[in-house]
């Protein structure tokens, strides 16, 4: 029930209401809880309200982190897996 769907703001109408694009479908949502959002931004929408701005930068960083994972636990994993992972991300 806490589902929140990434949506792109297409236009901002009056009263902090916006038209957003959710995977090709046009919906309206309130920007009351994310008043700093601008046209073109991605937001997470829950029950008709944007609840969070999504930075594309953040998405890329999260992915980069996954690739570093084996390196984080070097002690437990031993050298070989870390080296393997380095090769893959190189």
């Amino acid at each position: 029930m806490c589902l929140a769907v990434p949506s792109k703001i297409v236009s901002i109408d009056s009263m902090l209401m916006a038209t957003v694009d959710v995977m090709g479908i046009s919906r309206t949502c309130s920007l009351r809880l994310v008043p700093q959002a601008r046209v073109g931004d991605y937001v997470l929408v829950h029950a008709g309200f944007a609840i969070q701005l999504i930075e594309e930068q953040e998405a890329a960083e999260t992915l980069a982190l996954f690739h570093e994972l084996p390196g984080l636990f070097e002690d437990e994993l031993g050298e070989d897996l870390t080296a393997e992972a380095e090769q893959r991300t190189a």
Binding site: A4, R32, V34, E55, T62
Partner: peptide
């Protein structure tokens, strides 16, 4: 926090104020 694309460490301050 391993979901930084959806979560700021401080949360959503406007929502918290609401």
């Amino acid at each position: 926090n391993a979901y930084s694309r959806g979560v700021n460490n401080n949360g959503n301050l406007t929502a918290l104020a609401t």
